[in-house]
């Protein structure tokens, strides 16, 4: 369980010696249970990355506390264990691949853990097959597509056998094809590992167990995808856009109020609802 208790954070400005207390996280309380697939939504600058970096102790709360399975990130001696438990994948695929070949990069984490060679090799094979990149093991990272690079980054994290996978806008720099690859990979991982997927593409929240929305450093809403998508007006004020399917349903509902007793969130649901009603 990842638990945020009243976490506040602000970046200190090195130049003006004064700490400008512009709170990037403002008393955030969040719980992520084991096995869940949670999506966090929020516009640019709402504090999502700052939150993500608190999940494995890259940032330490200025107020409040973060615990991972009871381990407080405040204590430096816990960080090693916390970083094995919580794997982070970042936004820019180019800036998180360290080694000069795919397999060397996937092995980087296990090497740091000091695992024996056979175990590293076993985990390498396993991780490469999960992300379906076995055929690229000898490739140099710069020859891969964005989606492939991001799959390598995910494999590198999975090879450490984490319990939580935090994806910080892992899809936002990819083309539609690459995004599709990552989304389908994430839905395959769902269930076998806790996934905390951070994004500003609201469609990616459709399959979540739970959706959270952040704005200006605060947690402003939590609920099932359907509950969140029902908050049409608020979604706009949070700087997000409804998924096309839901937007269509809303527009239809304005004209034909009887049409959708429950709001459809996926294409199939929309089609089914339309077919049933006719």
């Amino acid at each position: 369980m990842i638990e945020f208790e009243q976490v506040s954070y602000w970046y200190s400005d090195v130049e003006s010696l004064l700490e400008i207390k512009d709170e990037v996280l403002n008393s955030v309380s969040v719980v992520i249970q084991k096995g869940e697939f949670v999506v966090l939504l929020g516009r640019n600058g709402s504090g999502k990355s700052t939150l993500a970096k608190h999940c494995n102790g890259l940032l330490i709360p200025k107020r409040g506390k973060v615990t991972i399975d009871g381990l407080n990130t405040m204590q430096a001696e816990n960080l090693w264990e916390i970083r094995q438990k919580v794997g982070l994948v970042f936004q820019n695929p180019d800036n998180q691949i360290i080694a000069t070949t795919v397999e060397e990069d996937v092995a980087f984490g296990p090497e740091n853990l000091g695992l024996p060679m056979e175990e590293i090799r076993r985990r390498l094979e396993e991780a490469l097959s999960i992300v379906d990149m076995q055929d690229f093991r000898r490739k140099e990272p710069h020859l891969l597509s964005g989606g492939q690079k991001q799959r390598v980054a995910i494999a590198g994290v999975l090879a450490m056998h984490p319990e939580y996978l935090v994806l910080d806008e892992a899809t936002s720099m990819l083309d539609p094809e690459g995004r599709g690859e990552i989304i389908s990979l994430v839905s395959r991982l769902k269930g076998s590992i806790t996934v905390f997927h951070i994004t500003h593409y609201i469609e990616e929240a459709v399959n979540a167990d739970r959706v959270m929305v952040m704005d200006e450093g605060r947690m402003v809403a939590q609920g099932t995808p359907r509950e969140i998508f029902n908050l049409r007006d608020q979604i706009v004020t949070w700087g997000l856009e409804l998924p096309q399917v839901t937007e269509t349903a809303w527009l239809l509902r304005e004209k034909y109020p009887h049409l959708f007793p429950t709001l459809p969130v996926s294409e199939t649901e929309l089609v089914d609802a339309l077919c049933l009603s006719s």
Binding site: L58, W80, L88, I98, A107, N112, I120, V157
Partner: peptide, 18 residues
Amino acid sequence: AIAMESRCYRGGIGRTRL
């Protein structure tokens, strides 16, 4: 640096090789 740190990198000590 952040990516390396979050993958448990802490220099050469205790590190094994593929």
